[in-house]
Design a protein around this nucleic acid. Structure first.
Lengths: 206, 206
DNA sequence: TTAGATAAATATCATTTGATAGAGATATCT
DNA sequence: AGATATCTCTATCAAATGATATTTATCTAA
């Protein structure tokens, strides 16, 4: 989209030019520039993300590494940079969408994965002991890698490998190795108390 | 700074207001708004980052985990969000600074750490076998975690733990566990060929 | 104190930009 | 065809904005 490249301060005339249309026409469809931007946000953030998740993640016939790799690779496949740019611009301008996105990630990805890792390690389930800050931050190791990969690709514009799936698999396997080795001690007595606190409901908005 | 909050499209009048000065006065010190922005960039990106690095990282008397934790925690300590915001805005607007930053990270952090991890694993040194894409991406697992933590703190504005150092240590230890376990196989025959290619000189600019 | 310079304010200009009004064109229905 | 409704364009306004010119205040040195 236009605003993802030019920023929200871009003029409606430039937008109209790019659409091959006259500037005044925009105001037949949108009462104001703000309404137009609202529409842009709505389109960009509606279904995007969070589709492939959920289902594939629970398919116990594949290894957790395969499932996570599949989810995040699918994620990066559908990502075209536009939503990411809009997303960052919105965050920089003080919108609170980004925080809510993390809430979604927590619900759809962090909780299932940590539940499974806890089971592997013979730790109590999430219903018995709520998700801790340490576990959330542990998962952020993986999530950050993917996000930053997308940023390097679409924002930084750096030269990336063609073999995205291999990189995602490397991220996932590195994370899983570290998480499996470290999760028990996150619940042990030697872990910092701050990491054992339950994760608060984040970014809650009225 | 002003532009890190308001964006580069903010008006010189608002800037002057915030400085408690009249708008025209700005043009006694800067020939144009663009020159003013250049100055802002210069200030923001000059020495910032990359100071604590280098030295501490080579102090073999501490564990690699301690050294990395120290470096990145110091990094996050000096970070006030301003540089990060400017940085992201610049990246979104197509500036190529971000790529160069990664070049710095590669030289000051990735190379020493991978060299050390290779030595631990009895793998050939970097002079014998250049840094691979896989190794760089491996380190990105750690680096992304830190960057994204800063973004969550200063851009997303989410509620973060007070105990930043504990989180950084968790990132570092998780990365190290995964990297130590995975580095040998990154050089083995089962690794994807794409990850074994040498990392190209990135983001080179004339 | 005064001459000269430096710093800051006022006033103003030309462009850009969001937004509106009304004319012309195109399609649709009877 | 003719009436009507929809769509798009031209023309224009008022406010905001980058930039300049001119005036006023403040400081410094002899």
């Amino acid at each position: 989209m236009f605003f993802s490249k030019e920023g929200f301060a871009a003029s409606t005339r430039d937008l109209a030019d790019q659409l091959g249309v006259r500037q005044a026409l925009l105001y037949k469809y949108f009462p104001s520039k703000e309404a137009l931007l609202d529409e842009v946000f709505e389109k960009a953030f509606s279904l995007h993300w969070a589709m492939a998740w959920s289902k594939v993640l629970f398919d116990q016939s594949q290894s957790l590494e395969d499932r996570l790799t599949h989810c995040y690779a699918a994620q990066l496949d559908t990502e075209d940079g536009i939503a990411l740019r809009l997303f960052l611009r919105a965050a920089l301008d003080g919108l609170l969408l980004p925080g809510r996105r993390l809430d979604l990630v927590k619900e759809k990805l962090v909780l299932p994965v940590i539940e499974e890792l806890r089971r592997e390690a013979n730790l109590p389930g999430l219903d018995a002991q709520p998700l801790t800050i340490g576990e959330f931050e542990l998962f952020m190791v993986l999530h950050s890698s993917i996000i930053f990969y997308a940023m390097r690709t679409y924002i930084y514009g750096g030269p990336m490998t063609e073999d995205m799936r291999a990189v995602v698999r490397l991220y996932v396997s590195t994370f899983l190795k570290g998480a499996r080795a470290g999760l028990p001690s996150l619940h042990g007595s030697e872990a910092p108390a701050s990491l054992k606190l339950p994760l608060p409901q984040k970014y809650a908005v009225a």
